[in-house]
């Protein structure tokens, strides 16, 4: 399968309404906030998890000519409804007792890239004891940051049941428990990412893989509904494509072309996507760089 030939830099906007986009384990699952600025954060691994889940749920049809499969190596149990054979379980628990030859690692690496979409996209670490079986993926995602400071709200909720009989006895049959969840009333997040063509050549990340990745970003939250997430949606995806594999312009100068302003009454807190205007400076684009709005 032919690897992509062009470098890409991308900007994704997504928003949340009355939900928790990414809980902070250090803060009782409160939405992540930069404590110094009050801006909301969504981590790279959170977004990569959703890309994996999307591909696992929507694997493309594999044709003979592809030469690559779309399995996902790092899975989340919650969405897994495939059978996985017991043989695998036994194998994975087996400690690597045998010496592995250096050539075997290369074979294994190639096989993993060919079979697993997430390995050839994001990379993976394979241990051999000497720890040299690393795959660096072509796709690199940074932290997402909200476009304004966010104020998470703690919402108390009641449940009209209790878990244990002991609790029921203590409440004399009242059987109520209080819980809480965190929400961000509204926030628009912006995230930057990079696709390296030279690294794609090493893992065999193809144009079909890239199209699937853009598809995953555009539909990132369509299959990730839950009580905690509220309403999340990918809003805009801007992709800068460079004519050359190494690129034709510095990434930061391209990202600066996309800016976000408040629309409407800026004295009021933003509550919906229309409270923002995203503007794109298409003037004097660097030679060899094209900009495409995928969403």
């Amino acid at each position: 399968m032919n690897a992509i030939q062009n470098r890409h830099d991308f900007v994704l906007f997504f928003d949340v309404e009355n939900g928790n986009p990414n809980g902070d384990p250090d803060a009782g699952n409160m939405p992540r906030v930069d404590p110094e600025t009050g801006y909301g954060i969504v981590t790279d691994v959170c977004l990569k998890r959703k890309v994996r889940n999307f591909v696992d749920l929507n694997p493309p049809k594999v044709q003979e000519s592809d030469g690559a499969a779309y399995h996902i190596y790092v899975k989340e149990k919650a969405i897994l409804n495939q059978q996985h054979d017991l043989a695998y379980k036994a194998l994975s628990l087996d400690p690597a007792k045998d010496k592995i030859k250096a050539g075997d690692v290369d074979l294994a690496r190639t096989w993993m890239c060919k079979n697993f979409y997430d390995v050839r996209t994001f990379g993976a670490v394979m241990s051999t004891g000497t720890n040299c079986g690393q795959v660096r993926g072509p796709v690199q995602i940074a932290f997402a940051k909200s476009c304004h400071p966010v104020v998470p709200r703690e919402v108390s909720i009641t449940r009209m049941a209790v878990t244990t009989e002991k609790e029921a006895d203590a409440q004399k049959g009242d059987n109520r428990t209080m819980g809480n969840k965190f929400i961000i009333p509204y926030a628009l997040y912006r995230v930057h990412g990079f696709v390296s063509a030279p690294l794609a050549q090493r893992t065999g990340f193809s144009q079909k893989d890239l199209n699937l990745f853009w598809d995953a970003l555009c539909n990132l939250f369509e299959h990730d509904r839950s009580a905690s997430r509220g309403e999340m949606a990918a809003r805009k995806l801007f992709v800068f494509t460079h004519a050359e594999a190494l690129g034709n312009a510095p990434a930061h100068t391209l990202f600066e072309r996309i800016s976000v302003q408040r629309a409407g009454d800026a004295s009021q807190p933003p509550r919906e996507f229309t409270d923002y205007t995203i503007t794109v400076d298409r003037q004097n684009m660097p030679a060899g760089v094209s900009l495409e709005e995928k969403l």
Partner: peptide, 20 residues
């Protein structure tokens, strides 16, 4: 990822995954 289990699946088939 244990290289050994990759080799086992390469040879014998079956599925390979890790559960976060």
């Amino acid at each position: 990822i244990p290289v050994r289990s990759i080799h086992d699946v390469m040879k014998k088939g079956g599925s390979l995954a890790t559960f976060i």
